[in-house]
Amino acid sequence: MTDAEKIYEILKDLTDEDLSEKGDTNLFETGLLDSMATVQLLLEIQTELNVDVPVSEFERSEWETPNKIIAKVQTLK
């Protein structure tokens, strides 16, 4: 599985929605992710993708869509 696929898998788990065709959906404005789900996302990224994301690194505007998350994870690798 590629990183992008893994991220969509994690997001599907958290939001109950398949977002792989909707990479530019704003996860916060639509209410798909709340703070709790966001923390789960960071932890899942840590275990599934081996990328350490401290909470301070989490700037909402940089993580608000699936595409942005994928790009951000690449830069942190």
């Binding site: 966001t38 923390v39 960071l42 989490f58």
Partner: peptide
């Protein structure tokens, strides 16, 4: 949200002190 809520939940989940989300 960023310095109490998220850190607190992160910390609990990371150490698996509570299972139920």
């Amino acid at each position: 949200r960023d310095f109490i809520f998220m850190r607190f939940t992160f910390w609990i989940m990371k150490h698996r002190w509570l299972k139920n989300r």
